[in-house]
Nucleic acid binder design. Structure first.
Lengths: 138, 138
DNA sequence: TTAAACTTTGCAATGGCATTGCATTGTAAC
DNA sequence: GTTACAATGCAATGCCATTGCAAAGTTTAA
């Protein structure tokens, strides 16, 4: 059982340990990006550092990506698109709900070209929209 | 002397104390956004908390704005445009140099419309481009 | 001028998060 | 089964943001 989770990990060259399967499963059931602390609570009494390293491993292998939503706390979400180890999709568009605190990955929209000063070169852009999510603006 | 600095503060309803004049002066001489730690080093041996509160006061009164450049450390820069107390310019476009670590406020360019899911409402958007600045890409 | 009231500053302390070191346990190869 | 490597758990550190409180400074009013 759980062959699917296992295969997902193997496909990314990640050793499918019990802990990792738990983490992956938990991540897959989330509707939005979660923090390390969220994960810790959801998987108590798992060790925080182990979870931290698990997320790191997932990220390095292109299974999840980390999000800086401006709260100062890193959030993680499963990569929906084709991320490659070490080099994720360069463009991230996320939405932070000021009421519920949820962080959502937005579907890839057209990415704006930002005009840079002379000699400035950008290879990455982080975009976070803030406001009220569907649930909270009802 | 220093009537200019003083007037700048007064114009924002900020009591022009010695400390605040120092901080304002320091901020004005920076070519890019600085962190609390930067400020602390530049104005040693001033107390960190006092500087922190000074920045807060400046921010609340629309004199500086804080920037989340994705490093996890808040940066501050003087508002060049017309920020109002409590409600800053909603759109921030900044550039983070991966080499020198400098954070720059970019001139206001056209801001992209991000397409949001149904019922999502955004009133703020944070955009950070990352790469190499003019100095570092030479 | 002095006392009271308010503002600003400085010091101490806390809390949260990211990160690392190291010892222990689990797993796989020989 | 023993050796070698990977993963886990615990302890500890460091950095940053933030708050409480007391001391010092400033303004206002008798």
């Amino acid at each position: 059982m759980n062959g699917q989770l296992e295969n997902t990990l193997k496909a990314k060259q990640i050793n499918p340990t019990a802990m990792r399967l738990l983490v992956l499963n938990f991540l897959q059931t989330q509707s939005y990006a979660i923090s390390l602390t969220d994960l810790e609570k959801g998987l108590a009494p798992a060790d925080r550092v182990t979870l931290y390293r698990t997320l790191k491993t997932f990220e390095e292998n292109g299974l999840v990506h980390s999000i800086d939503d401006g709260t100062g706390v890193t959030k993680y979400a499963i990569c929906k698109e084709h991320c490659h180890p070490g080099e994720h999709d360069d463009v991230h568009v996320h939405f932070f709900c000021k009421k519920c605190g949820g962080t959502f990955c937005l579907p890839k929209t057209q990415i704006p070209e930002v005009i840079l000063p002379v000699n400035f070169h950008s290879d990455e852009i982080n975009i976070v929209a803030k406001g009220l999510c569907g649930q909270c603006s009802g």
